[in-house]
Design a protein around this nucleic acid. Sequence first.
DNA 1: AAAAGATTTCAGTAATTATTGAAAGTTCCG
DNA 2: CGGAACTTTCAATAATTACTGAAATCTTTT
Lengths: 170, 170
Amino acid sequence: MKIDEAKAKFIQSWGALGTQWGINRTMAQIHALLLVAIEPMTTEQVMEALSISRGNANMNLRALIDWQLVERLHKLGERKEYFEAEKDIWKVATRIAGERRKRELQPVIETLSTLREVEKDPDRKAEIKEFRKVTKDVQQFAEKVDQMLDKVSKADEHWFLGTLLKVVRS
Amino acid sequence: MKIDEAKAKFIQSWGALGTQWGINRTMAQIHALLLVAIEPMTTEQVMEALSISRGNANMNLRALIDWQLVERLHKLGERKEYFEAEKDIWKVATRIAGERRKRELQPVIETLSTLREVEKDPDRKAEIKEFRKVTKDVQQFAEKVDQMLDKVSKADEHWFLGTLLKVVRS
DNA sequence: AAAAGATTTCAGTAATTATTGAAAGTTCCG
DNA sequence: CGGAACTTTCAATAATTACTGAAATCTTTT
């Protein structure tokens, strides 16, 4: 396989994975593009490489920066912005874990805790009991996952590797 | 909060979480509905409760069965099918881990391994070296996650609780 | 075998989500 | 200041994804 074909497949495949995980295709593709780029790229270059509009490139680059997966940088004496991906895959994973925890898991945990205060109703005792049991279980599970993600998002590579190995072996 | 309102919020919230994780809203809502149901429900009851069409209810119930999150059952002397959710949240989590591993991670791992065979090209040595490094890292990471998910998807609750706790503490 | 009860399929349509492109906004420099 | 270089915004549009509903199929009963 030629290098260009391989890069295209990598970008393609990363994009597909993104869509399955609630990240939009273009955002994942730009990330992949920058991951295999040998040096930082401009918005123009990203637009060109992926055949996307300026607006789209701009929005998704900003989103990647927001997720801390990409950094903005400037070359001396140039006004253009350049973009560079975090290439340490362990860092990428921890950043994603941290973001998703903050954006998705925490709101759910909050909602769950409000649901636990359901009113008593003598006519629907069994139903309420069941509801409280399910929400309690879900809440406990969500909190465990939250703690784990928190840990992961703050971990360094050494911790991460060590723990993953331990988990896999145990 | 009244029980009906609480149930509605739970279903709502579970549905929203689903969409963020690449599972369609209705599938997640049906799952939530069955989770808090006190007894198995028919397709008709699901349609009614969520105001959805027969086709939609049928397709998503089938998908849930496929994911092993819901079971089909029959009441004696009745022709209708009833549906019941797996209520053990640990089992739910392991089933989801298993499915996503099979459906999403494994194809990516396969693609990655094909990409590692990129042709040499004396004019683009640095580029190829970089590409091989990135794809190798990603592949190694994906394999670790795959092993972990495999472990999790085969684990029983006891293992799960123990290991998660260990991870959180370490 | 045919009617009744129940489930499945899928083409058409609706809803949602992503993208474009042009206009507005910034920043830098003479 | 004025304008060139670049970035950001966002209403309109396109692409994708999900849902409906009626017809087809399957299954049980008489």
